[in-house]
Design a protein around this nucleic acid. Structure first.
Length: 375
DNA sequence: AATTCGTGGAA
DNA sequence: TTTCCAAGAAT
């Protein structure tokens, strides 16, 4: 059976390593996908791709990457941009702190490294948003440094090659895998080897139903030999998203709508959206809490009808949203810093997370007759 | 070490 | 519908 935690890291023999390297690289040369970040080895282009690809599928990233690189073709172009513009270019991709960290790190490179991405492991690891994987990926792919870049694919592939039953969701496991991987990486073509490992995980050595029959290293895989490839890797199950009821306000005043900026920490940190409040279970008529919250801010509104209901699932939270319209009757003359009246046609100029874009779409498509019905 | 950060696609 | 997840990092 598979090796457990605490077992010593296996020492693959030289002949096995040679076979792995040869078979994997030959396969990669024949099967590598023609992805937009593989046009050249510009460290900046590699960097952007690696940040976007964090926890995000290749197919999802491609259009965002093309658009982002068209907008910010060079590191300096990105460094000179306003954060607003950067976030707008990231709109819809999720994990928005990635964009903020990338922007911050790029400016750091301009300030302290003359605009050239550092090839020093310690320097690059200090950049915001660059963790162990991303540092290894940039170093190996852009600078040909023979260092590990262990992502989810590599964890899975190595778990199977060596029949390791250690929980890959643990940080300690990733560190051990890096040491294991370090022995496999060739001095030549280190970047290709790392990418080949990931490519194999993405195309052949998949989480479910790996196609071992087409695998270039099926002869070197211990899991396959023991017939346990479907049981590996071992991964602790995550918790399901916690459900919560929230109310969005579609609050109009003339031809304007109220937008609100979320707190700088937590879910959708610093992002603009519709006014959002918790919907207490004891609240019978939706919108009362919203109305009260706005009143506390000096905004008096008259509640209208429910424009729609929707469900949105984040990685760890599930929102059941009630979208309520309201008419602003007047304000104290001053608006909180985190609130803004925006013409309906200008709402799309803001970088809105998808959960709010969906709500705006619903509100905008609701016939005027219904919106105005209660007023 | 365990949580928290989005989103959309597939089984 | 639920579950899992996809080239992780920050806290």
């Amino acid at each position: 059976m598979a090796l457990k935690a605490g077992d010593s890291i296996p020492k693959p023999d030289g002949e096995w390593i040679g076979a792995i390297r040869r078979h994997l690289l030959d396969w990669y040369d024949q099967n590598r996908r023609d992805l937009p970040w593989r046009k050249n080895k510009d460290p900046y282009r590699i960097w952007v791709s690696e940040i976007m690809l964090q926890q995000t599928r290749v197919d999802t990233v491609i259009p965002y990457y093309e658009r982002f690189m068209a907008h910010f073709p060079t590191l300096k172009a990105l460094a000179q941009a306003d954060e607003e513009e950067v976030i707008k270019a990231w709109e819809g991709l999720g994990y928005y702190s990635r964009a903020r960290n990338l922007h911050s790190a790029v400016k750091e490179v301009v300030e302290h490294y003359g605009g050239e991405v550092p090839s020093d492991p310690d320097a690059i690891s200090r950049l915001k948003g660059v963790g162990p994987y991303t540092a290894g990926a940039i170093l190996s792919i852009a600078f040909d440094r023979p260092v590990p870049a262990v992502d989810g694919n590599v964890l899975r592939v190595l778990s199977r090659w060596f029949a390791l039953g250690e929980d890959i969701s643990k940080v300690s496991t990733r560190r051990r895998m890096e040491e294991l991987d370090r022995q496999l990486i060739p001095e030549e073509r280190a970047g290709d080897f790392n990418q080949a490992l990931m490519e194999l995980g993405a195309l052949v050595c998949t989480p479910q139903s790996p196609t071992c029959d087409t695998c270039p290293v099926r002869g070197e895989c211990r899991a396959r030999k023991e017939g346990i490839q479907e049981e590996l890797p071992v991964k602790k199950k995550g918790k399901p998203p916690v459900p919560a009821r929230v109310t969005f306000g579609w609050i109009r005043k003339g031809d304007r709508v109220l937008l609100h900026r979320r707190p700088s920490e937590g879910l959708l940190a610093g992002m603009w959206g519709l006014p959002t409040v918790d919907h207490p279970p004891e609240e019978s008529s939706p919108g009362e809490t919203l109305k009260q919250t706005l009143a506390d801010q000096g905004l008096t509104v008259e509640l209208g009808s429910i424009l729609g209901e929707m469900e949105h699932i984040f990685s760890h939270r599930r929102w059941y949203v009630t979208l309520v319209e309201a008419l602003c009757l007047g304000d104290g003359g001053s608006l909180p810093e985190d609130c803004r009246w925006v013409e309906e046609s200008e709402v799309t100029a803001y970088a809105l997370p998808n959960v709010y874009r969906k709500a705006v779409k619903i509100a905008s498509e609701t016939p005027e007759g219904i919106q105005g019905r209660l007023f």
